[in-house]
Design a protein around this nucleic acid. Sequence first.
DNA 1: AAGTGGTCTAGACCACTCG
DNA 2: GAGTGGTCTAGACCACTTG
Lengths: 249, 249
Amino acid sequence: MALQPIVLDRQSIVPLYYQIQQCLLDQVRSGALKAGETVPSEGQISATLGISRMTARQALKMLCNMGVLYSERGRGTFVARAKLEKNFLQVLSFSEEMRARGSKPSSRVLAFKRLKPGREIADTLHLAAEEEVVLLRRVRMADSVPYCIECAHLPLHRFPELLQKFDPHHSLYQALAELYGIQIAAADEVAEAGAANAEEARLLRIRRRAPVFRFTRVAYLRDGRPVEFVKSTYRGDRCRVVNRLTRQI
Amino acid sequence: MALQPIVLDRQSIVPLYYQIQQCLLDQVRSGALKAGETVPSEGQISATLGISRMTARQALKMLCNMGVLYSERGRGTFVARAKLEKNFLQVLSFSEEMRARGSKPSSRVLAFKRLKPGREIADTLHLAAEEEVVLLRRVRMADSVPYCIECAHLPLHRFPELLQKFDPHHSLYQALAELYGIQIAAADEVAEAGAANAEEARLLRIRRRAPVFRFTRVAYLRDGRPVEFVKSTYRGDRCRVVNRLTRQI
DNA sequence: AAGTGGTCTAGACCACTCG
DNA sequence: GAGTGGTCTAGACCACTTG
């Protein structure tokens, strides 16, 4: 309830509402604000910090959207009980995901070439007829243990010299950012349950017919243009899909 | 660019920003506003409708958060290209999900009783020692075809007369809402890939070792208190997990 | 009655993009 | 320079919860 002293920097380029938001987030993370507890009200925050109520509100609103807080009309704003620090639903590349877990990612490159794609891929990537893609097929490993087979398709016209410039043993997303200034903003992913075929079993070092996940992922830029189509097969014993679902009321 | 005439009802209890938001959403859905096109600017909307710019902004902001629109500073607000009409990550009960697809849900009840839960469930639901749960185990079917085996656990103290009042052939979520005024707001779900064991194969009418999804779901109220723990097994050939991922930049 | 969050207003300045 | 979105202010009224 007592607001830890927040020092705002009005000269900073960082918006005031963001400074407040981060400060509250730190207090929740550190446990200074515990689950179920009341957060200082919009009125208190604005009075204490000498800012407008709308600005205080903006800070709280974003934390509510993130699921860190929740508000009840007439009662107040509270710290939510659920722990959702699990990097929910971020688009992460394999490399990023493994590094986040403290493992060292590596790759065995199976194919890296240009190719005329099939219908599904051409349609999904909005390619004109006869347009080619770059195909990158790799076994991805963490600490030298195979995790998945990843088969990425990228429109050649958008990444003209990828075949020459990119070392396929490194992180693709990092290369796209560095070479082309490309920021992936979102992705749609479909997961299916399957059983390993002979090739998958060999590459992933599992038994034939062992459980696997098959993912189909389409990655988008901020404006919604598709830039990547990926099919991948993950070992069922080393992968789980975590979701945070919300209910529209 | 031309704004379809929006008629605002200032007497309505429905907030102005929400009326605007729904109207724009309809135009995007109907195709009147196409992907990549400019949406009327905050200034235009506020001037045309005779409302404050902050209110117009609130309507646009929510649509941006939903991924329907995106904004670029200095340029404008645009319709996103991705098709994201896929019932994004909503918590839906089996019944709701099947009805949404136009199928008729039904259930074969395997168990409906009180029970002392194991450690994992007691911990997850924050139960005191010796506290019991209601166990509801069902084969869920759509148009009489088995889809999954669902095994739900609910804290008995919160739903004291569920065993007497609820007909286990109907929708559990609907009953929770009607009998206890309970609104589930969010859920965490973990999916794993597996192979059907003998019992699962029999109940789901698939071969032994056929691919299945195994889900573990914990459902929460608005304030984050857990109210349901579910383990379920879905036929791999009749289920896919769809995700929309976003990237924190 | 006092306090809370939800909505709304009518302004303001800024950084940015574009012609 | 005109138009855009991003931020911020200082008020306002309302419905709601709580004591």
